[in-house]
């Protein structure tokens, strides 16, 4: 029982079937950035506290800095790069731009992916729900108020689009 050193995995990343061989110690963030060039995935605290590395795996938010790439076999992985359609930004991205919900932008992909998860679970969240959902996402530029407005704005845009 010597165990595996590397594994072959077949995740669907941003809608594209992908086959990779990865060391078992490789994190999802390392795979997305270093193997696939998806630099929208940022890494900062590496302790699941700051939220910049957030991606969705089968629709659930995960901290890709401390999530094994090996665990994405057969699963859907969505990063911020998977949101826009060509040059057209996703309504959540557009809401962040229109509401000035970013300054340096480093935390933004994490906030956007967390927003995607929130609005899928709760299409019209109130302020308290939004604040609580971002318990594990840090922004040092905006003071959070424009981010909350952007989420509410995005909820409106997605609601109109859906109806």
């Amino acid at each position: 029982m010597i165990g595996l050193d590397t594994v072959e995995i077949a995740p669907r990343i941003n809608g594209r079937e992908t086959v990779l061989e990865v060391p078992v110690r490789m994190t999802l963030a390392e795979m997305l950035r270093d193997r696939l060039g998806l630099y929208g995935v940022k890494v900062s605290c590496e302790m699941q506290v700051c939220g910049v590395c957030t991606v969705l795996v089968d629709g659930q938010p995960v901290s890709s800095c401390t999530f094994l790439a090996a665990d994405t076999d057969g699963r859907r992985v969505l990063t911020v790069e998977g949101l826009a359609e060509g040059d057209r930004l996703h309504p959540i991205q557009q809401a962040f731009v229109d509401r000035f919900a970013l300054q340096c932008g480093f935390c933004t992909p994490g906030f956007i992916m967390m927003t995607k998860h929130l609005l899928e679970r709760s299409p019209l969240p109130d302020r308290e729900e939004i604040v609580e959902h971002f318990d594990g996402n840090l922004c040092r530029c905006t003071g959070y108020a424009p981010i909350i407005e952007a989420v509410q704005d995005a909820a409106g845009r997605l609601g109109r689009r859906g109806s």
Binding site: M1, G3, L4, V24
Partner: peptide
């Protein structure tokens, strides 16, 4: 980026295998 120390991965599919 901090790197995980090397380890080997086991993937049992039954409780009995895992207990071994």
């Amino acid at each position: 980026m901090g790197v995980l120390p090397a380890f080997r991965l086991h993937r049992p599919t039954t409780l009995a295998q895992a207990l071994e």
